[in-house]
């Protein structure tokens, strides 16, 4: 989907096992600095290589909330920007400069709660080797046809 299109995803049109389009991104040190500025999180291990090495890390590493944000963008690209009702992750491992990250968002179930049509998803951010960076779940309320 082009960046400037927002197609409406309907409850009726998805099934358990469906997956959101995969979002891939090679994380750079510039991404880490930009996220530090955008979030106000200037913990030095995310932008200061000298500091990161002084505490025994091989290099700077990405903010956990950057990983959650990137994965969140893949979810809202699919379900819509104002559809989420819940989004929760566990931070499993660090992200390192130049790793190719990819999102994986899978529908786990659909429920109708009165007038509300809810979709539960399982979501993960992984690197090219399949190492899990964050794993979690999200729920969206989608419009129904008719």
């Amino acid at each position: 989907m082009a960046d400037n299109e927002q197609q409406v995803l309907y409850f009726d049109d998805i099934e358990e096992g469906d997956q959101a389009p995969v979002k891939k991104h090679r994380i750079t040190r510039t991404d880490m600095v930009r996220y530090a500025g955008a979030s106000g999180d200037y913990m030095p291990m995310h932008h200061d290589e000298v500091f990161a090495k002084s505490i025994g890390q091989p290099s700077v590493f990405g903010h956990g909330m950057y990983s959650m944000g990137l994965l969140g963008a893949a979810i809202t690209d699919w379900v819509g920007k104002t559809s989420l009702t819940k989004y929760k992750v566990r931070f499993s491992s660090q992200t390192w400069p130049d790793e190719e990250l990819r999102t994986e968002v899978t529908v786990k179930g659909k429920t109708v709660d009165g007038q509300r049509h809810l979709v539960d998803m399982e979501c993960r951010l992984l690197n090219a080797d399949g190492d899990v960076k964050v794993i979690g779940e999200a729920q969206a309320e989608l419009p129904a046809r008719n």
Partner: peptide, 27 residues
Amino acid sequence: AVGDKSPIYKDTRAAKAAGLQAIPVPP
């Protein structure tokens, strides 16, 4: 900064075109 290039977050016209009352915020 979280890799979301949607114009909905920066252009009120794009937000309106998507049926939103204003620019929303990322999750």
